[in-house]
């Protein structure tokens, strides 16, 4: 009765080594761009300084993209990530600047912890608000998070009058601008977050539930899973990741403001979709997202080294997404005319 070709273990092992089409496509794109920019820029691109500057710039957008990716996987969207990040950073900045970070080592440590608690506490409240409105009231994610985005930013602007809070302890400056063994701390922070996120989304019951309900929420509900609780956690996770990105931004600029990083918002969606995350939900991997971010960062760094405006790389980012989708269409169309491959 059972007709399967490979025993289970081998089939799975084979899959482990086979990169998905998204990763393959992005790797090809990456190599092509490396070749192109290599010819144009030569050693200017392949030197330590250029690579280090890339490594400093990438993590903020990357963590924001992770914060966008989780709701996208669940079939939603979180427009409030930047606003949440800024409010969280402001909360931490408030703790740092109002309670003075001096004195004994123990009290310094305590204030750092207090600042983190403030930042993540604020983020958790926003995430829970998003999740509750979306999961329990049934508001479409784009509208709910549009509302919280405006409100959360409004709170940040209202409390700070649009001003900047600056001046943090040396540890924060180190996080933002320091390196360990030549590797920027921000990049380490990203790695420490991205790897567990990849595991969380593919290897845990929670991750499975998120991707499954991203494809069909009702079927998951009928399978005995409290989909509303899963959704609340999705937006909670998104907000907490935003807080991390907000703290990184704060550390890098050594200041916090209600309106930092707003241009990242739509870029994160673009990066996620380029990384193979289906905006309709259910599909996407952290590895694809990371590869797409590397491609985008490469374009941006090359533009920088070529002394053209950063805005041209913005245009190129959009064009790359459209181009990759276009090539995919042409490829699908061409395959209709090619002889079908024998099923392996």
């Amino acid at each position: 009765m059972v007709t399967y070709t490979a025993p289970p273990a081998r089939a799975a092992a084979a899959r482990l080594w086979k990169p998905g089409p998204v990763l393959l496509r992005l790797t090809v794109l990456f190599l092509l761009l490396m070749f192109l920019f290599g010819v144009l820029l030569g050693h200017r691109l392949f030197n330590g300084a250029a690579i280090r500057s890339m490594a400093f710039q990438l993590p903020e957008l990357a963590i924001f993209s992770l914060a966008m990716m989780v709701p996208l996987l669940s079939g939603g969207l979180d427009l409030s990530i930047i606003a949440t990040a800024n409010l969280s950073a402001l909360a931490a900045a408030f703790v740092f600047t109002h309670f003075g970070v001096s004195g004994s080592d123990a009290s310094v440590l305590l204030w750092h912890i207090a600042a983190l608690v403030a930042a993540f506490g604020v983020a958790a409240m926003v995430g829970l608000l998003n999740g509750t409105v979306i999961a329990y009231l049934g508001v479409s994610p784009i509208l709910a998070t549009l509302g919280t985005m405006t409100m959360v930013k409004g709170i940040a602007v209202g409390l700070t009058h649009g001003g900047v809070i600056a001046g943090f302890p040396p540890f924060m400056v180190f996080i933002g601008n320091g390196s360990i063994l030549g590797v920027p701390v921000v990049l380490l922070v990203f790695a420490v977050i991205a790897i567990p996120m990849g595991v969380l989304l593919t290897r845990t019951p929670f991750g499975q539930r998120v991707t499954m309900l991203g494809s069909n929420l009702q079927a998951v509900r009928y399978s005995g899973i409290d989909t509303r609780r899963v959704l609340v956690r999705v937006y909670l996770l998104s907000a907490l990741l935003s807080a991390v990105a907000g703290l990184l931004m704060m550390a890098r600029f050594n200041s916090a403001n209600a309106a930092y990083g707003e241009s990242y918002l739509l870029i994160t969606i673009l990066a996620a979709v380029l990384g193979g995350i289906d905006p309709a939900g259910g599909f996407g991997k952290v590895s694809g997202l990371v590869m797409s971010l590397i491609v985008l960062q490469l374009v941006s760094t090359a533009a920088n080294l070529l002394n053209v405006s950063q805005f041209l790389s913005l245009a190129l980012w959009g064009a790359i997404l459209l181009g990759v989708a276009g090539i995919g269409r042409v490829w699908a169309w061409a395959r209709l005319f090619l002889p079908a491959r024998k099923p392996s």
Partner: peptide, 14 residues
């Protein structure tokens, strides 16, 4: 069923 998702994921969903 979650039609677009793998057979394996559907079997272990509950």
């Amino acid at each position: 069923l979650v039609l677009e998702q793998p057979i394996a994921s559907n079997i272990v969903l509950s």
